[in-house]
Amino acid sequence: MLAVYVEAAQPDDPLAALQIGERPEPEPADGWVVVEVEAAALNRHDLWSLAGVGLPPSRMPMILGTDAAGTVDGRPVIVHAVITSADWVGDETFDPKRTLLSELHQGTMAQRVAVPRANLIDRPDWLSAAQAACLPTAWLTAYRMLTHDSGLTAGDTVLVQGASGGVASAATALGKALGLRVWVTGTSEAKRAAALERGAAAAFEPGARLPERVDAVIETVGEATWAHSLRSLRPGGTIVCAGATSGFNPPAELNRVFFQQLRVIGSTMGNRQQFAALLALLESSGVRPAIDRLLPLTEAAEGFRAMAEGNVDGKVVLVP
């Protein structure tokens, strides 16, 4: 079957590691099923995989992709990407042995993918396969950040850093739907305008002084925006961090953290209950994922290049 995969990582030039070609058909284990993939979304995780981050040579070749929507015996489904250990009970995101598809098990950027039957979520008829494929990583992460981790309530103000990224664009639209006042930063006028169209109340250049301090910051950029995030919080405010696309080692500024009594909360993905709540919010609000471009698997390199260069607004989706 046709797939997008990595055979040998290239830490200094991740895009050079991208391969598109034939890979073996999936062979599902007990309790697993094969999904006919209709759409698979790109995430920053896939670029890390091409660089060998979290993916040792012993697990390669590895088909990329954590997210997919498709069918199983004609049943439209979305794949919940968090794979737990067999004996785990409770919130999937706290399982210390959890993995995502494309880490231990082959990923979703293929014509077919094997997944645990328990990871199938019924896809509602009001959601297209391409839209559904955007949800399991970026949109579910944004939903958990806003509802579970931030301490925000309707009427509060949240700053979303780097508003054109997958999680950030989702947080902008979902924040509006949740009744929050959403402010964003964006590196270009076009990205800021797009965020305003998605529901942001105001858009600023990176590092800009804000009109007032915010209740929480959605942080996925890391080193480039961390100091601005800390300075932008009101005393007692919260940074929710779910990524660091610009680097993992920002200046801590611990004096500001303890003197202002700031909270720094880590957030990763979401569980099935939160996925169900996300779907309910999308249905009631009419919000749908923003798709930057839809590409066939054979043109995956274009999507990876655009994501690596930051030239996307929303999600890149691949279709077999």
Rank of each mutant, 00 (worst) to 15 (best):
G236E: 14
V184F: 02
D215E: 15
A190I: 07
V158E: 12
G165F: 00
V182C: 03
D156V: 02
A216N: 13
K176W: 09
G207M: 09
L152C: 09
A154D: 05
V221K: 00
W226D: 04
V214P: 09
V184T: 15
L230C: 07
S188G: 05
A173W: 05
R209H: 10
V184M: 02
G166R: 00
V184A: 03
E219H: 09
A190T: 13
V160I: 15
V182H: 03
L159G: 06
V158L: 07
T157D: 13
E223H: 14
A202N: 12
G186K: 00
P206K: 04
L180W: 06
A202F: 10
G165H: 01
E189D: 15
R198D: 14
L230D: 08
L152S: 10
A203E: 07
S164P: 05
L210P: 15
L233Y: 10
R181S: 14
S229T: 04
G237I: 11
V217E: 03
A216P: 10
A173R: 15
R213M: 14
L159I: 07
T153P: 00
I218L: 07
V217K: 01
T172W: 01
L178Q: 08
R209N: 10
L196Q: 08
A208W: 14
G166L: 00
W226H: 05
G207S: 13
A163C: 15
A168S: 15
G179H: 12
R192L: 06
A227L: 05
I218Q: 08
A170S: 12
R209Q: 15
L230P: 08
A194H: 11
A173G: 13
G162T: 02
A163H: 08
T172N: 01
V167N: 04
A216S: 13
A194F: 08
R209M: 12
D149E: 07
V160G: 07
G222S: 05
S232I: 12
G155Q: 09
D215L: 07
A154V: 01
L210D: 15
G179D: 13
V182P: 01
L159F: 07
G222A: 10
S164V: 01
K191E: 04
G165Q: 02
R213P: 11
L178S: 09
V158M: 05
V167E: 02
G207H: 11
G155H: 10
G236H: 09
V184C: 02
A171F: 02
A190N: 08
E205C: 04
L210R: 10
E219P: 10
V214H: 12
P235T: 11
I218T: 03
A170R: 00
K191V: 06
G222T: 07
T185H: 04
G207V: 11
A203V: 11
S188Y: 05
R231I: 01
T185K: 02
L180F: 13
V158D: 07
R231V: 00
P211A: 13
A195H: 08
R209D: 14
T185V: 06
A171L: 05
A173Y: 09
K191R: 11
P235Q: 13
L178H: 11
A195M: 10
T220A: 02
T225I: 01
A201K: 11
E219V: 03
L233C: 07
W226Y: 13
W226N: 04
R231T: 08
L196I: 06
V221A: 05
A227P: 02
